[in-house]
Amino acid sequence: MSQLFTEQSIIGEIVTEFPKASDLFKTYKIDFCCGGNRPLIDALEERSLAKEEVLDKLNSLYEEAKALNNQDTDWTKATFTQLIDHIVNTHHKFLNEELPLLSPYVTKVLRVHGAEHQHLAEVHSLYNQLKTELEQHTIKEEADAFPLFINFENNPSDYNKEELTKLVTELEDEHDGAGDLIKEIRNITADFTPPPGACGTYRLVYQRLANLESDLFQHIHLENNILFKRAREL
């Protein structure tokens, strides 16, 4: 049976075509947001993963979803306004609510367990850096970037395209920075695995950090691999 996705398929395009691939990529720690513009084989070789195993699972999941007609919204066919509304009302809303709520728990775990688990000081520092960067980033997108996208869609011009291209480059750089921070948090927390005997708050913080990573990767994917890509191609 021929396979839709091959080792040369671009990671971000795979997730665009088949959003549930993100779950599989997360399992294998394949970056599909900031690292979504490279062939799958690069990530497989980088992580020393079995090519046939990953490709078989990926294509099998796709065929199963197709058979069940279990397709997610195709954001490549949405207008800029529709996609931006989804990003703001889903992913920005999540960040605006979760970042300030999680912050005191991260601090509490450091205060209570930091002497015994010294990596928690770094988690605390990285989280607060990530929180600040994401808050500033979402404000910038909603105040400056997204209105420019919508204006360009309604009134395409060379000037608007030039301004948009410069802004997209800045936003992609900020995405890279946020992606690096959450990956570092994952690394020093052993994939968000709490130590044996960890208290409820400790476990809660790790679980919510994992959820934050999952939402952030979907968020960045929609922007880098769909919204920004389409803007450059217009």
Rank of each mutant, 00 (worst) to 15 (best):
S103A: 11
S60D: 10
Y105C: 02
S157N: 03
G200P: 01
G114S: 12
H119K: 02
S48W: 02
T107W: 05
L99E: 13
P194I: 01
L209Q: 04
N225D: 02
K57T: 03
E174S: 08
Y159V: 08
L110V: 07
H219S: 03
K108Y: 11
G177Q: 09
R203D: 08
L130A: 08
Y159Q: 01
L49S: 05
L40E: 13
H117G: 04
Q82W: 03
P195D: 07
L61P: 00
A198L: 11
N128H: 15
L234H: 02
L126G: 09
H221C: 02
S125G: 12
T189C: 04
L120E: 07
I220E: 00
L216F: 11
T169F: 05
F32C: 07
K26D: 07
I226R: 12
Q71W: 05
P196E: 15
T138N: 09
I220N: 01
P194T: 05
G197A: 03
D173Y: 01
A210W: 01
V106C: 06
V123N: 13
N211D: 12
E170G: 00
D31L: 14
V123C: 14
I84W: 09
L101N: 12
D42I: 14
N37K: 15
D42K: 14
L24I: 12
E135L: 11
I182L: 10
D74Q: 12
E64C: 00
F228P: 05
S60A: 13
L61N: 13
T27K: 15
G35Q: 07
N69S: 13
Q129C: 14
D173M: 05
V15D: 06
K77V: 11
I182R: 10
N225V: 00
S48N: 13
L126W: 10
H124E: 11
H92E: 08
L171M: 14
L212Q: 10
L227H: 01
Q8T: 15
T107R: 10
K20G: 12
S60Y: 10
S157Y: 03
R47M: 15
F32V: 05
L134M: 15
I226T: 02
E133V: 14
N37Q: 12
L99S: 14
